[in-house]
Design a protein around this nucleic acid. Structure first.
Length: 672
RNA sequence: GCCUCCUUAGCUCAGUCGGUAGAGCGUUUCACUCGUAAUGAAAAGGUCGCCAGUUCGAUUCUGGCAGGGGGCUCCA
């Protein structure tokens, strides 16, 4: 061995002189919070020696990279525990995910909730053993020998060349380049207790995992995410640098559960899903009906102002329409099966005398709007022609995907189709995007980013040249909006690219809301034409757009966004009047009458409950304005406000109170 | 569609090792008339998701179906 030589490194932006062969662990010896490092931009284990002139960045356990490494290492600890508990378990893949990790196993028997508890205890033991994560570079043959009992790992080795495309998480295990195995090594004996084929990097040791982890659920998942493959048993877990961070995460989940629109929908008596109707078919109760009507009324008003025409189309149609549109080719499985009618058979021979027709429930409105366009000759002077409809559509969603109001089988889209010339296309897209964003803001969502979904090479129709132009135009419009733009390659519908608006709700979750899709294809299929200024016949461009997506889904999102506490303009009951005692019923009644006369949804609570109980009831109903009247108020011709946050405003003259409420409703004030 | 768990009063949930069930909230009635999140009492309310099978007897055990939860796959 040669004598140590000095070399220069840039460590977190500062130049440093160290001996050659220095490892990250030595470099960050005094920084206990540093768990891995970036060497010239690449994440590496701390025990790796540092190359000369390298740029080194420390990665702490609470940084995004550090959290990923923590979670991936926790996944390894879990897998080790699983193979102790179930020696038959074969390893699938085990990557980190947002807020946690999972690991897939092929096991004889699925895991039970008790298994998860047992595993957590076993994991804690492993953590406390302070096993070392040791990286080992191996040849493919060595890897195959080490993984001889792990059939799925052998498949991964077969796939290593194409690992990056093989499926979610695969590149965590193997990748192009060298093959590595991570050994879990016992501190005292130096024995390898467990190992896994893995790219790493990992924490230096299991102790750093501490006790801030939990196994959250187990479920089946297809091997490599392919429905045709075997299902493995997946265990999900979460891991955090501190117990406090774990608690905060669990509190976030609890908050999401409190906001669940399915729970609030029944608590607030908004809607239900009667078994008698079938899966994914909601009914809206009177209170939910008010919310829905308020949503729809405002949407109609804004569409009228924005130059849309209102059309109406039936819920069912002969199948031919969807042959022309192509939907039967592409989405037959997602449609309810046909209703066969008008067939006539010979009374004696039972032979078909007249063939009959297949009618389908409509899964899309666009073909019908095309028929309206085509119902007579169109002039360029009519364009852009904007047709809007609250169109009810029915989709045969697979039984396992139906979910509350967000994924249903019968829904109402706020659907519009804009027919315009190619020259008008860009302006029309720009104004549509602005319209959509402005309207979403009025409903209380104001934190957006955009997603640009482009052609799926496996599933599309139409000329490449048209797709390119459409995609370019959408990208330009999206960029002009100034919002963040996320590419979604292959995410487009078969007939054209789209922009979708993703909105973040009050607790930071994102929802796909509005979509704007360009379509060069349906106008072709339906042979749509208009007469241009020069007398020639031209094909219009079609823009599909929906703001809510579906009214049902949007209501679900708003319920969760507002946690059921709707702004006054959407609230089923806007005001509840509570007299302090029965003696003030008449006075309260007059105030409520004034509010009703002003168009406010106001009710008085003259029930036999005591006063505090009535406050509690109004509070649980999330009423925006509770008005209270007692002796002091009546004498002064006033009324007292109690707001949802518990704050108050006492002694407000009745006329001022009415004006204030009317104002808040008219302004669609989000706070109330 | 696949894996897994679940389904008892309007809601949230106990319970029956196979002998047809109970609480809290809500509802109704009576009393109380009260100044900011639960007044007291009484009553009503259940073919224990549906259909079969086993059994003298099934809400309980078995199977099928429906509906739901959590995932996977899918989402025009």
């Amino acid at each position: 061995m040669s004598a140590p030589q000095n070399m220069t490194l840039i460590v977190d932006g500062e130049e440093k002189q160290v001996n050659t062969g220095t490892t990250g662990a030595e470099l960050f010896f005094e920084r206990r919070d540093v768990v891995v490092m970036r060497v010239d931009g690449v994440l590496k284990d701390l025990d790796q020696p540092l190359p000369e002139d390298a740029k080194i960045e420390s990665v702490t356990i609470d940084s995004p990279d550090g959290l990923n490494v923590l979670r991936h290492s926790t996944a390894h600890v879990m897998a080790q525990a699983v193979q102790q508990l179930r020696p038959d378990a074969k390893l699938g893949i085990g990557p980190y995910i947002t807020d946690g990790f999972y690991f897939d196993f092929d096991v004889e028997e699925p895991f039970t909730p008790d298994d998860l508890k047992t595993l957590e205890k076993m994991m804690l033991k492993i953590v406390n053993q302070n096993q070392k994560f040791a990286r080992r570079v191996v040849t493919e043959d060595e890897a195959r020998a080490a993984m001889a009992d792990e059939p799925y790992k052998l498949i991964l080795l077969d796939k290593s060349a194409e690992a990056d495309e093989a499926g979610e998480g695969v590149n965590v295990e193997v990748g192009a380049g060298e093959i590595t195995i991570y050994d879990n090594v016992d501190r005292k004996s130096g024995d390898t207790i467990w190992c896994d084929l893995c790219r790493g990097p990992h924490l230096p040791n299991t102790k750093l995992i501490s006790n801030a982890f939990a196994l959250t659920r187990s479920a089946a998942a297809y091997w490599l995410g392919n429905e045709k493959n075997k299902q493995l048993q997946r265990i999900y877990g979460t891991a955090w640098p501190t117990k406090e961070a774990l608690k905060a995460y669990q509190e976030r989940l609890a908050e999401a559960e409190r906001r669940d629109h399915r729970k609030l929908g029944s608590e607030l008596d908004l809607f239900s899903f009667p078994d008698e109707l079938g899966s994914g078919l909601p009914v809206f109760h009177p209170k939910g009906g008010i919310v829905r009507k308020a949503m729809e009324d405002y949407s109609r008003q804004r569409h009228t102002e924005a130059g849309y025409d209102f059309v109406y189309t039936p819920h069912i149609t002969k199948g031919h329409l969807y042959e022309v549109s192509g939907h039967l080719d592409w989405y037959r499985d997602g449609m309810f099966p046909p209703i066969h009618v008008d067939e006539t058979r010979d009374a004696e021979t039972n032979e078909v005398v007249k063939p009959g027709q297949d009618y389908y429930l409509k899964p899309m409105n666009c073909p019908m709007h095309n028929l309206i366009f085509r119902s007579r000759g169109r002039s360029y002077r009519e364009l852009p022609l904007r047709m809007f409809e609250f169109g009810s559509v029915y989709r045969y969603e697979k039984s396992g995907v139906v979910h509350g109001l967000t994924r249903v089988r019968g829904m109402t889209q706020d659907d519009a189709h804009i027919y315009c010339t190619r020259e008008q296309m860009k302006d029309e897209l720009t104004s549509t995007l602005n319209f959509v964003l402005a309207l979403l803001k009025d409903y209380g969502l104001d934190d957006f980013y955009l997603e640009l979904s482009t052609k799926d090479p496996e599933k599309y129709v139409g000329a490449d040249e048209a797709w390119d132009e459409a995609t370019r135009t959408l990208a330009e419009v999206a960029e002009a909006s100034g919002l963040e733009l996320v590419p979604d390659p292959g995410g487009a519908a078969f007939y054209g690219p789209k922009i979708s608006v993703q909105a973040r709700d009050a607790i930071g979750r994102t929802w796909q809301m509005s979509t704007i899709q360009l379509d060069f294809n349906l106008p072709e299929r339906f042979e749509l034409e208009y007469q241009a200024a020069d007398g020639s016949r031209q094909r219009p461009v079609m823009i599909h757009r929906a703001l809510f997506g579906s009214v049902e889904r949007f209501m679900g999102v708003l319920i969760e966004h507002y946690a059921g506490a709707f702004p006054a303009w959407l609230a089923p009951v806007q005001v509840v009047g509570i007299p302090v005692a029965e003696a003030f019923n008449d006075y309260m009644g007059e105030v409520i009458a004034k509010l009703k006369a002003a168009g406010i949804r106001a009710e008085a609570d003259f029930g036999s409950d005591r006063f505090p109980k009535k406050i509690r009831t109004a509070s649980k109903d999330k009423i925006p304005f509770v008005l209270i009247a007692g002796g002091e108020d009546a004498e002064a011709g006033a009324v007292s406000f109690r707001f949802r946050d518990g704050s108050q405003d006492n002694g407000v003259p009745v006329d001022d109170a009415v004006a204030r409420i009317v104002e808040a409703v008219r302004n669609r004030d989000h706070q109330l």
